Simulated assay, not measured.
Amino acid sequence: MIEAAMIWNEPNNKSHWDPEIDPGWHLFADTLACAAQALKQEAPALPTVLGGLSPIDPTFVQFLDSKRALDHVDVVAVHGFPLDWNLWQINEWPAKLAEIRAVTPKPVWVTEVGVSTFGAEEVQVFGLERTAALLIGRTPRIHWYSLYDLPQAWGATTRHKEAEGSSYYRHFYMGLLREDGTPKPALEQFGRYAPAMGLCQWFHFEDHRLDDAVAWMRRLGVRYLRTGLSWADSFRPNALDWFDRQMEALAEFDVTVTFCFTPEHRGIAPHHTSPPQVKEEFAEFCTAMIRRYAGQLRPRSDALAMPASLA
């Protein structure tokens, strides 16, 4: 059920890794190296992925490489939202991939790309069509973010909150389905691009949408999915029961599982963006999850392959 293991999410974004605690990202480099090496020892055939970069920054890749942090990483992932947050145009996607390929020989995946319907639902239809035209055939993995809108009551994972103005509220309208589960116009269009395009859908602890999400992914023809298992959630009561239920429900898909979110009591600061006090504890969580769920490991032969158009 697990196609790849992603280590952290958007580490060069302060909404996910605190640069005030770790100026220069030296602690992140050490944490990445520790977890990647541990995962390779646990499951040598399982591809490991550097958590999607946001912004797309080749100098960050060069820094991690200079620290030998990429030695046990197989894939570099990037995230892009040019119609919502990035300061570049959607037609620059091929150039953005080229920037990363210029500094690393590793495959480059797009593990989050999407368009908010905050302004107009028709914008998402255009963005999906243009994204598919620009990315399909140029990268082995494209994960559209996301299937569902983020419920208003949950709050977005960002350090800026309402101070972002409309930028914050765009987080809640990234789905192909509205919060109430009704389809947006882009949903039918997405089905035309699956399975060449997969999904990224984060499931909250004991998420009520899990079974409906599986039904929608089957209907759309989705074959690969990116989701997460939270280190912080692992300390909740009945955490393993929820993890088991989530991974069993997703067993028919090729899943890239993302490991991230520091438990408050195990961080240098009491926040999910904090570097861990002991990096080995995060690595142990990653390997424990792979040990538990990789019994049905189905490595895809094309997961690391360069598209024929770029070979």
Rank of each mutant, 00 (worst) to 15 (best):
R266D: 12
A156Q: 03
M306L: 15
A95I: 06
T287L: 07
G119C: 09
F285W: 00
H204M: 15
A133E: 14
T48L: 05
H143Y: 15
T117Y: 04
T287W: 04
I56M: 03
L83K: 11
Y173Q: 09
R218P: 14
T59S: 12
M197Q: 11
R298E: 14
P140E: 03
Y224E: 12
R245M: 06
Y193E: 06
M1G: 03
V75M: 03
Y145P: 05
V108F: 07
F282S: 01
D71H: 09
I100W: 03
A5I: 01
G221T: 10
H271M: 12
R159H: 08
T31P: 02
C34W: 00
F63I: 10
Q62A: 07
N13E: 06
A153V: 06
E206W: 14
D65R: 08
S167L: 14
A77P: 02
I56L: 05
Q201C: 11
H204T: 15
G198N: 08
A305L: 14
Q89P: 09
P299I: 14
H79A: 09
L250K: 07
E162V: 14
K106C: 06
S234C: 12
R226L: 12
E164Y: 12
K67F: 05
M174D: 04
G119H: 12
M197K: 08
K40I: 00
C200G: 11
A283H: 00
A303W: 13
T139W: 00
A283L: 05
V49D: 01
A305I: 15
A308R: 13
K279D: 02
P55H: 06
R101G: 00
V123C: 08
Y173S: 11
G198S: 13
T117L: 09
G165K: 07
A213R: 02
L147R: 04
P105C: 13
Q189T: 15
K184Y: 11
L240T: 10
F205S: 13
E264A: 12
L50I: 07
K184M: 10
M306C: 14
A251H: 11
G191N: 09
R130N: 07
S146V: 08
W25Y: 15
G175H: 02
F261N: 00
